[in-house]
Structure formats: C-alpha cells, structure tokens
Amino acid sequence: MKTNIYFVRHAHSTYTPDELNRPLSERGFLDAKVVTETLKSVNIDVVISSPYKRAIQTVEGIAQHFDQTIMMEEDYKERLLSKVPVDDFNNAIKKVWEDEHFSWEGGESNYIAQERGVSVTKKVLDIYHGKNIVVGTHGNIMVLIMKYFDSKYDYHFWKELDMPDIYKLTFEGEKLIYVNHLWRRKTI
C-alpha cells in the first residue's frame, strides 16, 4: 500500500526576525488559496505542520476544506542556520550545503537537520501508512528530507524552489518510489 506525503513549502511571508510568528504576506495568503485549490481534489487524511505561523497559514485552508485539525510537528520546522543573523545569507547557506557536517555557531548542520526531518518523516510514514498526508514545512528542511531518499535533491534544487511549492512523494513503506511536482507559479 502506498503512502503519499504532500510536502508544502510555505508561501511568501512578511519578514520579521521572529521565526515562530512570521506571518504570510498578502501575496502569501493569495498563494495559500491556490495551495488549497491544488489539493482539494485529493482525499487528504492528515494535515501536519511546522509550528511556524507561515507554514500553518499555508496549509490551514486545506485542513479546513477536509475538516482536519492541523497537527503540529516541531521537527518539520526550518533548520536553524545560526543563533544570530548571518551577514551574507547566500554564502552562509551555500557553505552548509557544501559540507553536511559544518554548522554556523549555534546552528544545525545539514546532517543534523536532515536527521531530525527524516526521523519525523519515517514516524509519519509508519503511523499514517497508506494515507494522503499534507505537511506544511520549509524549503531547507524539505529538501534535506528529500535528499535522504534521493541524492539528486541538493542545493541547486533548493535554490529553484518557489514560495509556496508542493511536492508529492509516494512511498512504499520507507522507500521513495515517485516524486511529482504539483506547483509552478504562473508567470505573466
């Protein structure tokens, strides 16, 4: 029996240094409605989210549509890059992708963040075997999880993600058998 996890990278947010409570932007709320429309035709059994507000807000429409309660899962939160803001985000993030064991002061290495994300994903696959699961999450942790199951998902793949983005991962047990990209922003 196959299990489908629909990883939903959160929509665009209004920047604040408060990671936990950073809300969606006006564009983000509009895109969250498109996420709901995209997933309405799927029989969603479970909705899980990172505890970060922007991730919750991105999937709450789909939870409401299917009359589901959003279950919070701490381990789907974004990877902590550093305990203090970095001067050059692009170089800082590139460095952790180049060396999976490197971490900035107080931050998580790719290896540690991936271990956290994969552990919770395996738990979800076990508990909700055969179900369709939406997971509201973040770009880095999502790609690190995907990379564990297929090494082609890397830094360059992460750089190409959209906000929001949706990837359907189909599993047999813990084996990833198929990935389908369900979101692409329409450019005018």
Rank of each mutant, 00 (worst) to 15 (best):
I141Y: 06
N132S: 07
V143L: 09
H156C: 15
T137I: 04
T137R: 00
L161C: 12
H138F: 05
F149P: 09
D162L: 11
V134N: 01
P164H: 00
I141D: 11
Y148H: 15
S151Y: 06
I133M: 01
M142D: 01
Y155N: 09
D154R: 10
D154Y: 08
L161T: 13
F157Y: 14
I145E: 00
S151K: 13
M163P: 06
Y155F: 13
V135F: 02
Y148S: 13
Y153P: 03
Y153K: 08
I145W: 01
G136T: 05
H138P: 09
H138A: 07
K147Q: 14
D165R: 07
L144N: 02
K152A: 03
K147M: 13
W158G: 07
D154K: 03
H138S: 06
V134F: 02
W158L: 11
V143R: 07
K159W: 10
L161E: 08
D154S: 12
K147V: 09
L144G: 00
V134W: 03
Y148L: 13
G136R: 09
I133K: 00
Y148R: 13
F149E: 01
I145H: 02
N132R: 04
L144I: 04
G139F: 15
K159P: 04
V134Q: 02
V143M: 11
Y155E: 10
H156V: 15
M146A: 12
D150G: 07
Y153N: 02
Y148G: 10
V135Q: 09
V143N: 05
M142S: 07
N140L: 08
D162E: 14
G136N: 11
H138Y: 05
F149S: 01
M142Q: 03
L144Y: 02
G136V: 06
M163H: 15
H156Y: 14
I133W: 01
F149T: 05
V135W: 04
D165G: 07
V135S: 08
H138V: 03
V143D: 08
D165K: 09
D162V: 06
D150L: 04
T137G: 01
M163Y: 14
Y155S: 11
T137H: 03
P164W: 01
T137W: 02
V134G: 03
G136A: 09
